[in-house]
């Protein structure tokens, strides 16, 4: 069913990873991604994955969820892995030879490296979205982008748009469900038929959906005006982000770990 779709994939909890300031988490995730690409030697990657494992453990997110977040990118990982396997021409004799295919040791290593890197990247960003609710995350993005407001970037407006969009997703899913049922009750065949039939069957769903989305947008705009919304200037917040003691601790911990991982570059040069 449509209502089973979850977006934002937030996994509520009360661990230190959940409670850490979202701005810090956002910055740390960015740093982690950079780290994955600057220290992609075997030791560095192992340590990066290990660190991620520890963080997942602390945040008490079930293993099943991590696998779920990796599932969609699995075909890409396999595809790039296979390409690397066959197309990298390394030094020395090939490990394997069949017709025009040759597999070199470098190819195998590189394929594994890419696969681990991509999966760590996805798992790392998923940790952020699992432990941070979308609304809080938007808030963090707004705060982090604030300096750019001076350059004329409509930071508050962008953040508000994101928040509204996130809020509307479940509403629109519910609405779609209702409209689909109403049209099915009039004999519309939404889940059967060939491609052309299915596309035309969507029209009776999409038109009412668009109309209702516009109507809701109108109503929301009116409701915001009624509560004197006039943009971000001088607007105060209900929940002010505080950089607390445990945030410093988290920052220090990650800084040390990232530092160690970065230094593996110098231990294993040439990667």
């Amino acid at each position: 069913m449509l209502r089973d779709i979850t977006i934002g994939q937030h996994f509520p909890g009360d661990s230190i990873v959940h409670r850490t300031d979202p701005r810090l988490k956002l910055v740390l995730v960015l740093a982690y991604i950079i780290l994955l690409f600057t220290s992609s030697n075997p030791l560095g990657l192992t340590l990066s994955v290990l660190l991620l494992g520890v963080l997942y453990r602390i945040s008490r997110i079930p293993l099943k969820l991590i696998l779920k977040s990796l599932k969609p990118i699995f075909p890409i990982v396999v595809f790039t892995g296979v390409l690397n396997l066959f197309f990298i021409v390394g030094e020395g004799d090939p490990l394997f030879r069949f017709w025009i295919f040759r597999i070199y040791k470098d190819g195998v290593v590189y394929a594994i490296q890419i696969a681990v890197r991509v999966m760590a990247l996805i798992a790392g960003t998923s940790l952020l979205t699992y432990t941070t609710s979308p609304i809080v995350l938007t808030d963090a993005i707004e705060r982090l982008l604030k300096p750019f407001a001076r350059l004329g970037l409509p930071v508050h407006e962008l953040a508000m748009m994101m928040t509204i969009a996130l809020r509307f997703i479940p509403l629109l899913i519910e609405e779609t469900d209702k409209i689909m049922n109403a049209q099915k009750a009039r004999g519309a065949q939404i889940d059967s038929g060939n491609l052309k039939q299915r596309v035309t069957a969507l029209i009776p769903v999409l038109i009412p959906l668009f109309i209702s989305a516009f109507r809701r947008a109108d109503e929301l705009a009116m409701a915001m005006e009624c509560r004197c919304y006039r943009g971000g200037d001088g607007r105060t917040r209900l929940k002010v982000l505080h950089f607390a003691g445990h945030d410093w601790l988290a920052l220090a911990f990650c800084a040390v770990c990232f530092g160690i991982i970065f230094c593996t570059r110098f231990i294993m040069p040439g990667w």
């Binding site: 209702k178 409209i179 109403a182 009039r186 009776p204």
Partner: peptide, 10 residues
């Protein structure tokens, strides 16, 4: 006929 059936018109 569902509740608020006018939202199904297209």
């Amino acid at each position: 006929v569902f509740q608020y059936p006018e939202y199904q018109l297209f």
